[in-house]
Amino acid sequence: MAGAKNKHWAMVIDSAKCIDCKACDVACKRENGIEANGRREVYRNWITSKGVEGTYPNLKQRFEPSQCHHCANTPCYKVCPTSATYKNDDGLIMMDYKRCIVCSTCIAACPYDARYVSKQKKAIDKCTFCAHRIYTGKLPACVDTCPTKVRVFGDLNDPESEVSKILASRHYFVIKPEAGTKPNLYYLT
């Protein structure tokens, strides 16, 4: 599962569509066989919110879905002492669980807090963009299950892909650009 060299996987997120329904969370756990056993810190994707802001009746609440950014300039990859974190040819950041010694250096290095300790695997774990699915032509679980289609996934090397077209026509930003990570998660404004 090394991925094709000519692919550049990316995800475009339109937070304005997110209704915080948790479908992505449950679908991810089912698709990837993750049993959280009630541990709140076990997740590969998440929705952040500052909660209800303001004073009644002038209120607002925002939701921002996120997951591993599969950074091109990859802090977790650089710090891994055992090469447990590796890159596929298509840029996906993957984990070799057998090599992982759970030193947690990568957790500290990740500016997006995308990694967690998996008791199941005795290793650090994170989102793989559902590599096992995308290599067989399917969409990542968080993408296919989303009611409002917050996430769009595809190949940035293909100018005809939906992600390419959206990024060509819409304003977008990345999270923590100052970290210099060159992430592959793009947020629409």
């Binding site: 479908a23 449950v26 679908a27 089912r30 409002t148 289609k149």
Partner: peptide, 25 residues
Amino acid sequence: IRRLEPEPEFTKARGMMCARGNAGA
């Protein structure tokens, strides 16, 4: 049973499966 994936051609649901539907597995 491992997972219940949404059927993309079922347009009434716009090809989605919510948290509850996923948890049904």
